[in-house]
Design a protein around this nucleic acid. Sequence first.
DNA 1: AGGATGATATTA
DNA 2: AATATCATCCTA
Length: 208
Amino acid sequence: MSRGRLSHSFFQKYNTCLLAQKLLGCELVHDSPDGLTSGIIVETEAYLQNDPASHAYNRRTVRSEPMYGIAGTIYIYLIYGMYQCFNVVSNQEDIGEAVLIRALQPTRGMDLMYLRRLIVPGKIIRPIQNKKISNVELCRGPGKLVKAMGIERAVHNNLHLSEGPIFITPPMKEGFEIVSSLRVGINVGVDLPYRYYIKDNVYVSKHS
DNA sequence: AGGATGATATTA
DNA sequence: AATATCATCCTA
């Protein structure tokens, strides 16, 4: 059952765009106190040093500091006041680059994922009958997958994938075709084709 | 199409 | 200190 976890050498081995592609087909795992959840990475985006869309573009601030850590560091940030995004830091230390994980194909702990998706922070559970979240919808999008996986910035930011409760296993899926396209939800650097996903995979957030 | 929601970076 | 800006998601 245990396939082991990818270590620093894997994350450092490729440049950021290539790592974004190599991570496709690998399994992201969170072994949490509430239970284990996991999913195959099916969609990623690369954010580079000289990339206007990157948090590390022309600056090194407290928020983006984890991006300057060694490859395999976890970088989590808050977006739009409500959602969090999960990144795998890449390249050498002191070079601020990372790969955003945008969608997962759930493999384990789907019941727990479903429960987490329903919980509104600090409040009650969302009206149940109103919306039924399908397996396809559980992790289809960067904010969704972070919530379904029980990942929190306050707890997991700046941890490393080579140790700790969150890790990535070697590829489970192989032989698929990778599509590259423009990145989603940005206003600058829009022309850079640094989004990658598994062709025809239903769990990818959005097609183009 | 528009609103939720808060940290962050930038300007003053 | 004030403000514009978000690597998003949900509801209408």
